[in-house]
Design a protein around this nucleic acid. Structure first.
Lengths: 91, 91
DNA sequence: TTTATATATCTAGAAAATTAGATATGAATG
DNA sequence: CATTCATATCTAATTTTCTAGATATATAAA
């Protein structure tokens, strides 16, 4: 949560249709967006983005789903909501 | 906002009466809390806390007021509120 | 069952943040 | 006006974060 790129990724994942091109195999974003698309959007290296997504997954902010060769990442809305509520309450 | 200690300071400043001893010269916390008290509470060095408070002031999160030898820091409630609202809206 | 593709992990260098000691400044006090 | 006290600033060492290249793994395709 203390990194601009990672926060930006969370924001993009709020609206996959608006922020990413459609996937090849699937015609919806129910499981989120594949790593490659996120990487293209940030301009950072593949390994960096993979590391970021892994960190976000460890923090429970995103949920990964594997479909064949691809891993799709979507927001964990519940955790994000809790985080915002706690912050508003405590800060 | 990406540092535990600095966030903790903001939280403490929400309730100066509850978190800090009374000041020598002044019997209220209208202008906030002096640097020394904040330093004691964190256990970090004087220069570190001064640096932190300066950073927070640059980010407009706190407002300093000088009274004689002491500098008191208080929360900038408006900016903090805006920050939380923006985060809730955008994240 | 070799090859290609997408993602993950390992490693290490570069950059940024953290932190404290030394020193400076500004205000009160003897 | 010399001294003391509170805070600020400067400098540098340490730690953490960022980031990419190399390599590994998993799946699909040829």
């Amino acid at each position: 949560m203390s990194n601009k790129t990672r926060v930006q990724i969370l924001k993009w994942l709020k609206d996959p249709e608006g922020n990413f091109p459609p996937h090849q195999d699937i015609d919806h974003f129910d499981d989120g967006v594949c790593v490659g698309f996120i990487q293209d959007k940030t301009g950072l290296s593949q390994s960096t983005i993979s590391t970021y997504l892994n960190a976000m997954q460890n923090a429970n902010l995103v949920i990964p789903t594997r479909h064949g060769k691809w891993t799709y990442y979507r927001r964990n809305e519940e955790v994000i909501r809790d985080y915002l509520e706690t912050l508003k309450k405590e800060l």
